[in-house]
Amino acid sequence: MSACVGLSATGCRTFTATSSQGLALMHEILFIVSAMRLPIVMATVNRALSAPINIWGDLSDVMANRDIGWVQLFGNNGQEVYDLTPCCFKIAEDRRVLLPVMLNIDGFTLSHVVEPIETLTQQDFDDFLPPYEPAQRLDVNQPISMGPVGPPDIFTETKKVHDDALVASRIVVNEVLDDFGRRFGRSYRAVEEYQTDDADVLLFTIGGTLGETGHTAVDALRARGMKIGQVLLRLWRPFPFDDIRRIFTGRKAVIVYDRALSVGGPGGPVASELRAAMYGRPDAPAILSLIAALGGRDVRAVEMAEQIENAVRRAGEGEYPAYEMVGVRE
């Protein structure tokens, strides 16, 4: 990542990819990239962090990097990852953003399988993503210092600017996704909804594996008469508070599946964010935090459906804990 900082600072369009321990190893530099406003794009193949040594999929790597100040998106299948990659560059390089963008991809389930996708032509890419014009770069003829010391009397101001930029990038994310949808017919949103119109219970997922298994579970539960829908979080940072509040207000219960655990903390990271978004609001739903699919553990749709039914029943009886790790042998 340090090499990418140098490359991007000289004015090159920069891409890299990492995963799990690799992401953990570059943790220090990730903050530097975003604070220096370098529009690097990185694909992160989400896998568990050791120990015990585990090379399989979960979200513990990205969830330990929530606060790095990057735009963070999730692609839920091969087609989405393909389509979102040029979108990431377009978001990152927009003069209103100028921040790095991370595209998260479920480890193994997406990174190590083959699936058919529709491709774009070179012309499509060229039309959608114009040549890169860096806003600022290292140039011997016009010397500047990038990434200098920021003493106490300016550090707070730099953080405020960074936060404002990341929050405001939300508008550009929507614009770029809409533009992509108009051109190529595949539309993406910061928050995706499935069967939510009449639902009083919502399944809330992040990442492809639980997202797509969740669809099957929702179909099964609907067939059994439960009025359930599903919400998939695509944009993790900046957290889309407005969409989340609009979608979740007035529902009875939300079952949040997290593929990471804040050990000794409040449970799943996505559930925590949802609770923060809904706190103190009238008509907030009951938020049930489930931790599943850690370190590559498969969760089948039938198990998910059972876990959801079980959680909703126990919440109705008022005995659901702050969070629960499901599918654990005890």
């Binding site: 220096m36 500047i144 990434g147 730099t158 600017v161």
Partner: peptide, 12 residues
């Protein structure tokens, strides 16, 4: 400098 006066990425 205020937030409005800082260069991009606090560059000098």
């Amino acid at each position: 400098p205020s937030t409005r006066e800082l260069a991009l990425g606090a560059a000098i």
